[in-house]
Each structure stands twice: as C-alpha cells, then as structure tokens.
Deep mutational scan, measured.
Amino acid sequence: NLRWTSEAKTKLKNIPFFARSQAKARIEQLARQAEQDIVTPELVEQARLEFG
C-alpha cells in the first residue's frame, strides 16, 4: 500500500474534484512504476502535467 506525504495530499486537493479520483489512480500508478512506496509532490505534479 502506498503512503502519501502531507505535501502530496495537499497538491491532490488542488486538483478539481471531478478529476481527482482519476488523477489519484494515475499518481499511484506512476509511483508503482517508479517502484516507490511513498507518493511525493513531484509525482502529483507529474500527473497534473499529463492531465493538462
């Protein structure tokens, strides 16, 4: 299971509600691909840039 830093959680809250669950799934996918067990603000930002 993935842990989220408080900064990453804050960044996730800045994503519009309607896109948040999809973004969260993508962020967690990116973390797993990078073999990380902690979601960082950088991963959230990477996903945000993908979504535009």
Score class of each variant (00 low, 15 high):
residue 1 N to A: 11
residue 1 N to Y: 13
residue 1 N to T: 13
residue 2 L to A: 03
residue 2 L to G: 02
residue 2 L to C: 03
residue 3 R to S: 10
residue 3 R to T: 15
residue 3 R to P: 09
residue 4 W to N: 01
residue 4 W to P: 00
residue 5 T to A: 05
residue 6 S to T: 12
residue 6 S to Q: 14
residue 6 S to H: 14
residue 7 E to H: 05
residue 7 E to F: 03
residue 8 A to R: 00
residue 8 A to T: 01
residue 8 A to P: 00
residue 8 A to G: 02
residue 9 K to G: 03
residue 9 K to P: 00
residue 10 T to F: 11
residue 10 T to L: 15
residue 10 T to C: 08
residue 11 K to A: 14
residue 12 L to S: 01
residue 12 L to G: 01
residue 12 L to C: 02
residue 12 L to I: 04
residue 13 K to R: 12
residue 13 K to E: 13
residue 13 K to S: 11
residue 13 K to H: 10
residue 14 N to W: 09
residue 14 N to V: 06
residue 14 N to Y: 10
residue 15 I to W: 12
residue 15 I to Y: 06
residue 15 I to D: 02
residue 15 I to R: 01
residue 16 P to V: 04
residue 16 P to E: 03
residue 16 P to L: 03
residue 16 P to C: 06
residue 16 P to M: 03
residue 16 P to S: 04
residue 16 P to Q: 03
residue 16 P to I: 04
residue 17 F to L: 13
residue 17 F to E: 11
residue 18 F to K: 09
residue 18 F to M: 11
residue 19 A to G: 07
residue 19 A to E: 10
residue 20 R to E: 03
residue 20 R to M: 06
residue 20 R to K: 04
residue 20 R to F: 03
residue 21 S to G: 11
residue 22 Q to F: 12
residue 23 A to G: 02
residue 23 A to D: 01
residue 24 K to G: 02
residue 24 K to A: 07
residue 25 A to I: 13
residue 25 A to P: 02
residue 26 R to M: 09
residue 26 R to V: 07
residue 26 R to Q: 07
residue 27 I to T: 06
residue 27 I to S: 12
residue 27 I to F: 01
residue 28 E to N: 03
residue 29 Q to R: 08
residue 30 L to Q: 03
residue 30 L to R: 04
residue 31 A to K: 01
residue 31 A to T: 06
residue 31 A to G: 02
residue 32 R to M: 11
residue 32 R to W: 05
residue 32 R to I: 10
residue 32 R to Q: 07
residue 32 R to A: 06
residue 32 R to V: 09
residue 33 Q to M: 13
residue 33 Q to L: 13
residue 33 Q to V: 08
residue 33 Q to W: 10
residue 33 Q to Y: 09
residue 33 Q to R: 11
residue 34 A to L: 15
residue 34 A to H: 11
residue 35 E to F: 14
residue 35 E to T: 07
residue 36 Q to A: 10
residue 36 Q to C: 07
residue 37 D to K: 12
residue 38 I to G: 02
residue 38 I to V: 14
residue 39 V to G: 00
residue 39 V to S: 00
residue 39 V to M: 01
residue 40 T to Q: 03
residue 40 T to Y: 06
residue 40 T to L: 04
residue 40 T to F: 04
residue 41 P to H: 07
residue 41 P to Y: 07
residue 42 E to D: 13
residue 42 E to V: 05
residue 42 E to C: 04
residue 43 L to T: 04
residue 43 L to C: 04
residue 44 V to F: 07
residue 44 V to S: 01
residue 44 V to C: 04
residue 44 V to Y: 03
residue 45 E to C: 05
residue 45 E to L: 07
residue 46 Q to F: 10
residue 46 Q to T: 06
residue 47 A to M: 07
residue 47 A to Y: 15
residue 47 A to N: 03
residue 48 R to W: 15
residue 48 R to Y: 14
residue 49 L to V: 10
residue 49 L to Y: 08
residue 50 E to P: 05
residue 50 E to F: 10
residue 50 E to Q: 09
residue 50 E to T: 09
residue 51 F to W: 12
residue 51 F to I: 12
residue 51 F to Q: 06
residue 51 F to L: 08
residue 52 G to E: 15
residue 52 G to M: 15
